[in-house]
């Protein structure tokens, strides 16, 4: 499945929806949207990953870039990450720095 990355920013919450396979060839698209989200001064970054079937370390580097660019007080939520991708996050310690949720939780994410 071709990779797509879509960004929406509303009420200070940046939402990126990732679909397909995220490898080094397409990671710059994701990274560009992370930069745009950072420019929007969003207070939260929510990444929808239900339809992301693959993520290489290039995706991890874009996530680390997000954390560094947006500031450590901006929480990053990952919604619906598949088991294999969660394993990659755990192996590399990224699960310490992002919040993994099975589904979108408005009460938690949209609370100020």
């Amino acid at each position: 499945m071709a990779f797509t990355s879509n960004l929406e920013v509303t009420n200070g919450i940046a939402r990126i929806t990732l679909v397909g396979e995220l490898d080094a060839a397409v990671a710059p698209q994701f990274r560009a949207q992370v930069e745009e989200a950072a420019r929007s001064q969003a207070r939260r970054l929510v990444i929808f990953m239900q339809d992301l079937s693959y993520m290489a370390s290039a995706g991890l580097r874009a996530l680390a870039f997000a954390k560094q660019k947006m500031g450590s007080d901006v929480d990053i939520y990952m919604i619906g990450a598949q088991e294999s991708i969660q394993e990659t996050l755990r192996m590399t310690g990224f699960h310490h720095s992002v919040i993994l949720l099975d589904s979108y939780d408005a009460a938690q994410i949209e609370a100020i």
Partner: peptide, 18 residues
């Protein structure tokens, strides 16, 4: 530094490690 917060750690070498 795999267990360090993302904004305090290096992010090189992850691909080979995985």
């Amino acid at each position: 530094d795999l267990d360090m917060p993302l904004d305090e750690r290096g992010i090189g070498g992850l691909g080979i490690f995985l």
